[in-house]
Design a protein around this nucleic acid. Structure first.
Lengths: 222, 222
DNA sequence: GACGCCAAAAATATCGATGTTATTAATTGA
DNA sequence: TCAATTAATAACATCGATATTTTTGGCGTC
């Protein structure tokens, strides 16, 4: 999902700040002071600013001229906005994948599903590493599902919306103290997809996304 | 589409470089030297680099660590890739708009269509301003069509794919020396949309996009 | 006690300079 | 003449310092 090593300080800073935002370590709406990040990551201001500028176009950071950067904020309206986009994009991409996908696609779906089921769930609340591992496997599985759609543009968009959704999941997880058990849903989606049952697969996937949305919605407070 | 004035040199540089890429003044694959841009825009290297970093996440510029920036390249495979994404995204967004749109949406479609028809076409090959004016009106119309879909995320994605498509159009225009007459297509799409005929509107819009793709495809050479 | 104004402090956006890495040119040996 | 190695050049990534702008805090007035 993101390169472990980077040849440039800006790229390294980009990866780390990005991760921190998605995981929720940098909270929505919080200001991102150049100096603080500079101290934290042990690099000068320039690479930090370059990293932040990349994140701006990615929608993870918002920028106001002369007033610095802050973590893009989240709210219920945006949650529904995002939910719609995810449904539409994933539906189209999944249908195309089912139509166009070959053996390699099927095998990749099976493989990533297996890895997802094997990935450790978040048992204790603060075992960050385990959570990250599961999130990564989860990501891989959903990418595999739409991996044969034939459009990198659409896949990138799905990835981006998925990143945004991960931020909401992190909040909900922090509020509820655990994750829901949705292994069955993933299995069902994979089976329908491989069986080339477009409508069923889409319906299962859409409901899967909706349940995620509802979980976040219900755990929302302030 | 993009703010005319910017309070910061980085934002100003961003807008100008972006425009230059979309219009095709910076050609696909061309290297973007910091120094050159610095001289051209009369600002130091830092704002230029920040601008380029934003464009990287936007997909208009590619970056290779330690090897600088270059204009994102275009090819026929990417054209089809992009075409699929545009069709899927616009179909979903248009359907939602037709279902959810109210009076204000209808009126905006009519208004932007009128402005598009009134906008001067590109008569002479190098009258850049006129072309830009039409491109802008064209953009506004397509945005208006999906303006009531309810998802900013999806609208932003459509905008982004539309920008990429504009780059292909610029190439094809330069090769052919003119634009095709597609006023009728826009009128038909608008009418079907306002008549709330989902399937017809979607079909017209999809064909509209396909014709654009075909035009570019046929004018491709090197 | 609240509002507005002014000064002090902090933070940003930008510059110019420098170390490092890639690219080009020159040179040597086969 | 060409390949490979090395020197020279150019470009990039990064730093540290500075000018501007925003924010904060205090002060006086209504």
């Amino acid at each position: 999902m993101v390169e472990a090593v980077a040849n440039t300080r800006a790229s390294a800073a980009y990866a780390r700040i990005r991760e921190a935002i998605i995981v929720g370590r940098h909270q929505p709406g919080a200001r991102l002071h150049i100096q603080d990040l500079s101290d934290e990551l042990q690099v000068g201001p320039s690479p930090i600013r370059e990293a932040l500028n990349r994140l701006v176009s990615e929608g993870l950071v918002s920028q106001h001229d002369q007033r610095g950067f802050r973590v893009a904020s989240l709210d219920l309206k945006d949650l529904d906005d995002l939910f719609d986009a995810r449904c539409w994009a994933n539906e189209a991409a999944l249908r195309a994948s089912i139509q166009r996908g070959g053996r390699d696609w099927e095998e990749n779906v099976v493989l990533t599903l297996h890895r997802l089921r094997r990935a450790p769930r978040l048992v204790e609340v603060d075992s960050g590493l385990r959570g990250a591992q599961w999130e990564s496997a989860h990501d891989e599985f959903h990418n595999a599902l739409i991996g044969a759609c034939g459009s990198t543009w659409m896949q990138n968009f799905c990835q981006r919306t998925s990143d945004a959704a991960a931020r909401y999941r992190a909040i909900s997880r922090a509020a509820l103290g655990g994750q829901r058990g949705d292994e069955d849903e993933h299995v069902a989606i994979a089976e329908a997809a491989i069986a080339r049952d477009e409508d069923k697969a889409v319906s299962l996937l859409t409901n899967h996304l909706r349940r995620t949305r509802d979980l976040v919605f219900n755990s929302w407070q302030r």
